[in-house]
Amino acid sequence: MIGTHRHLTGLEELSREEILQVLDLATSMKEVLSRPLKKVPSLRGKLVVNLFFEASTRTRSSFEIASKVLSADAVNWTASSSSVTKGETLVDTARNLEAMRPDVLVIRHPCGGAPRLVADHVGCAVVSAGDGAHEHPSQGLLDCFTLREKLGTLEGKTIAVVGDISHSRVARSDLHSMPKLGAKMRLCGPPTMMPIGIERIGGCTVHHDLREAVEGADAVVMLRIQHERIGDPLIPGTREYSRLWGLNARKAAEWLKPECVILHPGPINRGVELSPEVADGPRSLILDQVQNGVAVRMAILYLLAGGSPEVHPAGGARS
């Protein structure tokens, strides 16, 4: 359980305390990852099924590694999102997988709400690994974790999120978590990529000018621009996008505070939203995010699969 929740389908429903519960546990989990022998028996005998309806090597591998470090068995199930055409619905698929008696079902799906639909029909815990443009809760938590680690706290910090907010589940999960930890958010992108009423979620202001959004910020989250949005038609092209909303070394040097850090959920479109010098430069926390992603997912799996307290990694687990 995360607080009172059996499932993790979004950060909207988590309180500040519940978010901190995951982040604090992730700190202990990260310690496990730094050991020479990266394995604890916390979830021995537990089964985690990764059900992915969208290709995502990155997130799936992260959940898979997290499961293995905790000694859980992990099974990957790649499915087609056009399941209806082959006659099996999402609920059918979920019920079939449930027959394998998993403890946690991790689901990635192109439709918003799909993890919730699955959670309504299965007995095990369900973790969203991203659903449509709704939420990507483990990403939001790892972003919070990474920022807390680097900035010490999110209290009073200003965080800019730049890119295609309308299609971004990462932006929504950041927006549902960071303000709960005391951060102020600035969302930035072309008006075609800014969903109506996003400011009503609270804790944020909306900007269309990159400089206005990033000046004075403590952190900038750059979102991936998906090539299929060109001609959607949300933007005329990537060249113009990178000129207006991309971050390169010159803009970073002129507009960002010296200590401002840069996050990106990956994979990066080099030269579009981020120039290579910035992506690989000293401000970039992109590789920290990847590492922290495993620790945060370990914490999520541990809490939802009902890990045994005596082998809690912080409680001196034998490794």
Binding site: E12, G112, G113, D131, G132, A133, H134, E135, S166, R169, R172, P195, I196, G197, I198, R200, I201
Partner: peptide, 13 residues
């Protein structure tokens, strides 16, 4: 409907 609720749910408006 396109609006704050759709934005929150991540559904196309």
């Amino acid at each position: 409907n396109e609006g704050p609720a759709a934005t929150r749910l991540g559904l196309k408006g």
